[in-house]
Each structure stands twice: as structure tokens, then as C-alpha cells.
Amino acid sequence: MIWGSIIAWYLFLAGLAAGAFATAALVSFKDRGRKAFVKVQLVGRIVALLALAIGLFLLIFDAEAGFKNPLRFFYLLTNFASVMTWGVVILGVFGCVSLVTLLLSLLKKHVPYWLDGLGIAAAACTAAYTGVLIGVIKTYPLWNTALLPVLFLVSALSAGMAATFILSALIAPRELEGLGILKKLHFALLPTELLLLVALLYVASSTAPAAQASVERLVSGDLALTFWLGLVVAGLIVPLFSGGIGIGAGGNPGGRGSDTDGADGARASGRGGAGGGGRGRTSSGIRTMEAAGDVGVLVGGFLLRYLIIVAAVPLTFVF
């Protein structure tokens, strides 16, 4: 195996960073300058920059010769036929926007919407490029599908939201209760991801024998336990249940107009953010369960990349 868990961690962290940034930006769009959700935004922006920094360090660390001769990294901008070169440009833009918006947030300044918009675009490119990077490699037919970047994109947003929500639940639970709509989006990503995963495995296994062998390793071979228990159960099924229960149990008050109510509620804490219909705040049991689901999403996000990297069987070119 040429690439291993370090690269899987990098792909995961870059996606997580992109997803956390997008979460913060979406919260800011929803907030419309009322400052009802400043902490959630700040959490998202911090997670984004931190995850990106750690991920980039791992990437550099894995590039042994560059790690020993850092000046060689300047050559990275020479071959624009390479997806990796484009990745460097995308990461550069995303990193800069991420840093500037975090500084603005820390200084309690309003982050301009155009800047968050640009950041979302860069974040989407970052998440998708991690899929394109390995997706263009014909040697591994498991990677070589157009579905992979889409799957990584969805999973990245899912993981970024999960990380932001877990930390926000600890730091600013009230704010979180006003974000019912984002919770719904977060939830909706799970069945989407499941569907994409099934489609990817199906499409791949019908192309080359090498991809078929990869899928077999995942579904019934040496990686089956990690695949079924780690990725499918912990990463998708558990979050689907806990998220579903969380949404059903009043993460959101009686439907219409809930978002603005929630936002106001978060500010006027006396009214109990999500508590329309007299149901009160989300109970701590449900909150714990939601957090467990989010941990599952993170585990699944990493395992998705790890399994796809290690399960890939190269084209059997001879004989």
C-alpha cells in the first residue's frame, strides 16, 4: 500500500475543516447580524482552522523528501496538470479565508457575507478535491469514479457539522437549540451519504475486477468488521437514529416560523430557545444521544476515507 492512514487522516481533516467552515458560514447567514449565534460560529471557525492546520501538517509530514527539504514545496505550483497542484491553490485560498474570518470573529467583528460566500466555495472545492485527488488515479478502479468527490463532499459537511455541534453543545447549548434547520440539514446528509456509498460500491464493483475485489474486501473480506460496525453502524445508522429522535423530540418547535423563533429564543433565554409548545429545552438525555450520534459521524467520516484508501486493489495489469 502506497498511501496509508496518514493520508486518510489528512483527507478526513481537510474535509472536516471544510464542513466546519461551511457550518459557521451558514449559521452566520441565518443569524443576519443579530449576534444570536456568535459562539457556534466561533466554534465552527476554530474547528475549521485547527483541523486544516493539523491535516496540512500530516500531509507535509507524509511527503518525506519535502519534509526534509521544505524549500522544495515551492515547486508544488509548477504542474497545473496535476490535481495536487490545484489542491495547493484551493487549500491556499481556503486557509486564508478561514484565517481572516476567524480573526474577525475573535475581534467580534461581523464577517462580511461575501467573504463567507467565498469561503463556502473554497471549502466545497477543498472537500471535493480530496475526492478528485484520488479519483483521477486509474490504477485503483475503486477510487476512479465520479461519485467519490460527491461522497467526500457530503461526508465532509456532515463531519464538520458534527464536530461543530458537539463542541457547541458543551459551550453554547442555548444557541444550538435555535438551529433546528441546520440540524435537519445535518440529519438529511446521512441518508444521502448512505445512498452515495451504496452507489459507489455498486458502480465500482461493476467496472473492473480490481474494484470488485476491493468491494469484496469491504463487504465480506478482511475489512468487513470495520466496514459494517465502524462505518455503517457507528458512522451512519447510530447517527440516523439519534438524529431522528433528536429532531422528533423538540430540537424544533411546532414547525412554521420556527427558525426565527429559535433565534430570538436563544437570545431571550428566559423563553427557552426551542421550547415552543411548552416542551421546554432539549432534555439532557437527548442532548447526550445527539452528541453520541455526532461522535459516530466523526468516526464514520474517518473510516470512510481510511477504508477507501486501504481497500483499493490496484489494476491487475499482468496476466
Binding site: 498511501w3 507524509d62 511527503a63 515547486y75 496535476s82 484520488i134 490504477t139 495489469f317
Partner: peptide
Amino acid sequence: ERCIGCKYCMTACPYN
């Protein structure tokens, strides 16, 4: 002198 050891080429080579 230019190689950073990213191993991208190794994944791309179908002959290993």
C-alpha cells in the same frame, strides 16, 4: 532535487 516524496506518482503508475 525537486521531488517532495508525496508518492502521488507511485499511486498513478499502473505497473507499480
